[in-house]
Computed example of a mutant assay.
Amino acid sequence: MTKIFISFMLLAVTLLADLKNEYPTQKFLNSKIPIVDIRTPPEWVETGIVKDAITIMFFNEQGSYDIKVFLAELNKKVDTTKPFALICRTGSRTKILSQFLSKEIGYDVINLQGGMMYVKGMNLPIVSYKK
């Protein structure tokens, strides 16, 4: 009986999860939906970050990751019961991570397509990264 209940709950979470792919716009930035920048610290320093972005590295410079460490940091800094967005350099890393967080964890995730390169190209506000 317990296994059936747990299976049902996992299915319900998966069905309720939502994944959206959007390009960053000023309207989106004004919406106050939290944006999590998953790039590396050197990338944050090099290009800056979207104003009010929450910096939590996912893939390190060698391409490795620790999902448990990332999820602990994410859940500490973001209310994951509400929608939040992910951004990286071009949208490649966030495409992979947003699908995982939506399908496997059940989070409502917005993948910001084009990433920081799109943000820069559209002249959207960027601030310097401060540790």
Score class of each variant (00 low, 15 high):
22 E>L: 12
23 Y>P: 02
23 Y>F: 12
24 P>F: 04
24 P>G: 09
25 T>V: 06
25 T>G: 12
27 K>V: 11
27 K>E: 15
27 K>N: 15
27 K>F: 10
27 K>S: 14
29 L>F: 09
30 N>H: 14
30 N>I: 07
31 S>N: 07
31 S>Y: 02
34 P>L: 04
37 D>G: 08
37 D>E: 10
37 D>T: 02
37 D>I: 04
38 I>Q: 03
39 R>L: 13
39 R>F: 07
40 T>E: 15
41 P>E: 03
41 P>K: 00
41 P>I: 00
42 P>L: 02
42 P>W: 01
44 W>T: 02
44 W>F: 15
46 E>L: 09
46 E>S: 07
46 E>F: 09
47 T>Q: 09
48 G>T: 08
49 I>P: 02
49 I>A: 11
50 V>E: 03
50 V>M: 11
51 K>D: 01
52 D>G: 07
53 A>Q: 01
53 A>D: 01
53 A>T: 10
53 A>E: 00
53 A>S: 15
53 A>C: 09
54 I>R: 10
57 M>C: 07
57 M>L: 04
59 F>N: 05
59 F>D: 00
59 F>Y: 14
60 N>C: 02
61 E>W: 00
63 G>H: 03
63 G>M: 08
63 G>N: 04
66 D>Y: 09
66 D>C: 02
66 D>A: 06
68 K>V: 04
68 K>R: 10
69 V>C: 01
69 V>F: 01
70 F>S: 08
70 F>K: 09
71 L>T: 12
72 A>S: 12
73 E>L: 08
77 K>C: 05
77 K>T: 05
77 K>S: 13
77 K>R: 12
78 V>Q: 05
78 V>S: 05
79 D>L: 03
80 T>W: 11
80 T>C: 14
80 T>E: 12
83 P>W: 04
84 F>P: 02
84 F>G: 13
85 A>E: 01
86 L>S: 12
86 L>T: 06
87 I>P: 10
88 C>K: 10
88 C>D: 15
88 C>Q: 13
89 R>N: 05
91 G>V: 04
91 G>H: 06
92 S>L: 08
92 S>Y: 07
92 S>M: 11
92 S>G: 11
93 R>K: 11
94 T>F: 04
95 K>H: 09
96 I>V: 04
96 I>R: 05
97 L>I: 10
97 L>D: 01
98 S>Y: 08
98 S>Q: 07
98 S>L: 06
99 Q>K: 06
99 Q>E: 06
99 Q>F: 04
100 F>Q: 00
100 F>A: 00
101 L>Y: 07
101 L>W: 08
102 S>P: 06
102 S>I: 04
102 S>K: 02
103 K>Y: 06
104 E>I: 04
104 E>R: 10
106 G>T: 02
106 G>F: 11
107 Y>F: 15
110 I>K: 01
111 N>W: 10
113 Q>L: 15
114 G>P: 00
114 G>D: 00
115 G>I: 07
115 G>W: 00
115 G>L: 11
115 G>A: 12
116 M>Q: 07
117 M>N: 14
117 M>D: 15
118 Y>F: 11
119 V>A: 11
119 V>Y: 00
120 K>Q: 14
122 M>A: 13
122 M>D: 11
122 M>I: 03
123 N>T: 02
124 L>S: 13
125 P>F: 07
125 P>Q: 12
126 I>M: 14
126 I>F: 09
127 V>A: 14
129 Y>N: 08
130 K>Q: 15
131 K>A: 03
